[in-house]
C-alpha cells in the first residue's frame, strides 16, 4: 500500500493525514446528511459543494501517501457531485440517492482504512 512514497519521515505526514481524515469524514457525513434532508436548492447544493471540497482535498493527497484506493473513491465521488451540480439535476431541490450511496461507500472505506492503520500501529 505504501509503495509510492518511502521518504524518511513520511510516516509523520501519513499519521497527520489519518488524523485529519477522521475529522474530515465526520464533516463529510454531516454535509451528506444535511444535503439529503435539505429542502431548498441552495441548502442542498451548498452542502454538496462543501462535501465536494473535502473529497477534493482527500483525493489530492491520498495517492501521494500510498492510500491510492481511498484517493480513487474520493475522486469518483467528487466527479459525481460535479456532474450533478453542473447538470440539469443540479437545478432541482433534491439530492440524488446515488450520491448519498457513493458518499456512504467512501465513509466505509475511510473508516476501514483508519481501523487498518490503527491495527498496524499497535502490532
Amino acid at each position: 500500500m505504501h509503495q509510492k512514497l518511502e521518504l524518511p519521515g513520511i510516516e509523520r505526514i501519513r499519521a497527520r493525514f489519518l488524523e485529519m481524515l477522521e475529522q474530515r469524514q465526520r464533516a463529510l457525513a454531516e454535509h451528506a446528511l444535511a444535503a439529503w434532508e435539505g429542502t431548498s436548492l441552495q441548502d442542498i447544493n451548498d452542502n454538496l459543494t462543501e462535501a465536494r471540497r473535502i473529497l477534493h482535498q482527500i483525493a489530492g493527497t491520498a495517492g501521494s501517501l500510498g492510500f491510492d484506493d481511498l484517493g480513487t473513491i474520493a475522486r469518483d465521488n467528487e466527479v459525481a457531485i460535479d456532474t450533478h451540480l453542473d447538470g440539469p439535476s443540479g437545478k432541482i431541490a433534491s439530492c440524488p440517492t446515488e450520491i448519498i450511496f457513493g458518499l456512504d461507500d467512501f465513509l466505509k472505506s475511510s473508516e476501514a482504512l483508519i481501523a487498518e492503520q490503527a491495527t498496524l500501529e499497535s502490532a
Binding site: 519521515g9 513520511i10 505526514i13 493525514f17 482535498q57 489530492g60 493527497t61 501521494s64 501517501l65
Partner: peptide, 15 residues
C-alpha cells in the same frame, strides 16, 4: 489550502 499538501512539499523539497 490543504495543509497535508504543504507538509508533503516541505518534506520533499527540504529533505
Amino acid at each position: 489550502d490543504d495543509p497535508i499538501i504543504l507538509e508533503l512539499l516541505s518534506h520533499f523539497i527540504e529533505g
